[in-house]
């Protein structure tokens, strides 16, 4: 039974930390908004679907950046300030602590995308209408879950590599591209498609687009429900992998004592 006290406590702590020093605003808000801006300016005729694409793309970029940076560095942050051993000595598995944070980080990404949306409205007077708001928000919630899981995975993965900051830089854009949120992937070379298919948010983005009323550009059109089902399945796989990674990390840490060092 996961410790819900720990997950919510950790979520709250992350929120407090964020409010105390909201430095993530810059990568997670300024960059996505710039993306939206540039996309909108590239297209001379802004029909409703282009606008939606641009805004959705900016929003997803915000969520992805935030999960990648904030969650990815989560454990390294504890290593740096020396709190990792205080965490490890408690009976709560590290994965649950980081889960609380990853959910917060994905949520902040979501709030950022909302801001992008509002900014786009104000600057371009896009007057976006969602075809089906309810379906849209359901898809958004599931993407949130999926991104939290990816954040959790990255948190554990980055502990094993000293190259985490380089990886963050390298991964940010390509993964955003394969998510299909930036350019429809049927415009991408077909060898890249399998990458997209294994990246959960790709299905989420497709579901969002359908719910928003933009026609699906997926090479495998499975419809809204199909998208969400696949997203669920992929998220479950991520979660299992993450769980294994954390187990391995815990064992390795207790073997080598390397987690306390920075």
């Amino acid at each position: 039974m996961p410790n819900l006290y720990a997950i919510t406590g950790s979520f709250k702590k992350q929120a407090l930390d964020f409010i105390a020093d909201p430095q993530w605003i810059i990568p997670s808000l300024v960059a996505p908004f710039t993306f939206t801006l540039v996309t909108l300016m590239i297209y001379p005729e802004r029909d409703a679907s282009i606008v939606l694409y641009a805004v959705l793309g900016g929003g997803i970029l915000g969520m992805w950046s935030n999960s990648l940076r904030a969650s990815g560095f989560s454990i390294n942050y504890d290593r740096m300030v020396g709190t990792l051993e205080s965490l490890m000595v408690t009976p709560t598995p590290l994965m649950e602590v980081i889960a609380g944070r990853a959910i917060w980080n994905a949520l902040i990404g979501l709030l950022n995308s909302l801001l992008v949306f509002i900014l786009a409205e104000v600057v371009f007077q896009t007057s976006i209408r969602l075809a089906d708001p309810l379906m849209f928000f359901i898809a958004l919630a599931i993407i949130l879950l999926s991104l939290s899981t990816i954040g959790l995975f990255l948190a554990a993965f980055f502990v094993f590599t000293r190259a985490s900051s380089v990886l963050t830089q390298i991964l940010e854009l390509p993964i955003f591209i394969i998510s299909g949120a930036m350019i429809p992937i049927n415009l991408m070379p077909s060898w890249s498609w399998p990458l997209s298919f294994t990246f959960g948010p790709f299905w989420g983005v497709d579901a969002l687009q359908i719910a928003a009323g933009v026609s699906s550009t997926s090479p495998i059109p499975v419809g809204y429900a199909g998208d969400l089902l696949i997203l669920f399945a992929i998220t479950a796989v991520y979660l299992t992998l993450t769980w294994m990674l954390f187990k391995k990390m815990d064992g390795k840490a207790r073997e080598s004592g390397s987690l306390g060092r920075y």
């Binding site: 950790s10 407090l16 709190t83």
Partner: peptide, 24 residues
Amino acid sequence: GDRGLYYRISGRQNLRFFSDLYRI
């Protein structure tokens, strides 16, 4: 030593967080 605490939040918030890890 002075490592091992979350420095951006308050002392009370630190204690609450660590308590939560013990399901109190």
